[in-house]
């Protein structure tokens, strides 16, 4: 099996998902697109298939995530750990919906997401955006499954607090 064929097919399938992951980490469409292109074309131009037993999807997502985080670190040196608190996420900051009450839910959610640490956004996106299981998320992020569970919970709790006034409209 030509690994490039396999990579291209998987890359085409994963392109929107990978772009979403990069976008939610970087909050910049152009840079997110650059990151995904670099990762996917880099995989394509590799002389040999990636030496891994992991699923290609997890590999692609992990490379996109790592590349995007590198971009963030270059732009904003310092820790991007899970415990990092977003710059506007303190309790005194106004509720996002106060600012966005007349806007669509999308704006409120984007505002809330922007206030979460990048690593949390990535985890939320992998779970809610790509519907990955805890084990799959752990594979992508190279974390323990228990860490994924705890962090996801914390990320959701923060998001829920930020979206506190988003009432009604259940699934």
């Amino acid at each position: 099996m030509n690994h490039r064929r396999e990579v291209v097919e998987e890359a085409l399938r994963e392109w929107p998902g990978a772009f979403g992951l990069a976008f939610h980490l970087l909050h910049d469409r152009a840079r997110a697109e650059d990151v995904c292109q670099e990762v996917l074309l880099g995989l394509l131009s590799a002389a040999r298939p990636p030496q891994t037993d992991r699923p290609l999807r997890a590999l692609i997502l992990r490379m996109v995530r790592n590349r995007a985080l590198s971009e963030l670190r270059r732009e904003r040196p310092g820790s991007l750990d899970d415990d990092e608190v977003g710059p506007l996420a303190d309790a005194a900051s106004p509720d996002p919906l106060d600012e966005a009450s007349r806007r669509e839910e999308a704006v409120a959610v984007e505002t809330a997401l922007a206030r979460l640490p990048a690593a949390w956004r990535a985890m939320l996106y992998l779970r809610e955006g790509l519907d990955l299981s805890y084990a799959e998320i752990a594979e992508v992020l190279e974390r323990d499954v228990d860490v994924v569970r705890v962090t996801l919970h914390r990320a959701r709790r923060r998001a829920r607090r930020l979206l506190g006034s988003l009432k009604g409209d259940p699934t």
Binding site: W15, P16, G17, F19, G20, F23, H24, R29, E33, E105, A106, A108, V109, E110, L113, L124, Y125, E128, G129, L130, R156, A159, R160, L163, L166, K167, G168, D169, P170, T171
Partner: peptide, 18 residues
């Protein structure tokens, strides 16, 4: 509700992928 809002937002991101 939070989950649904996030899913809608993430779906919009994917749909808007270049």
């Amino acid at each position: 509700r939070t989950r649904a809002a996030l899913r809608r937002a993430f779906a919009r991101t994917r749909a808007g992928a270049p």
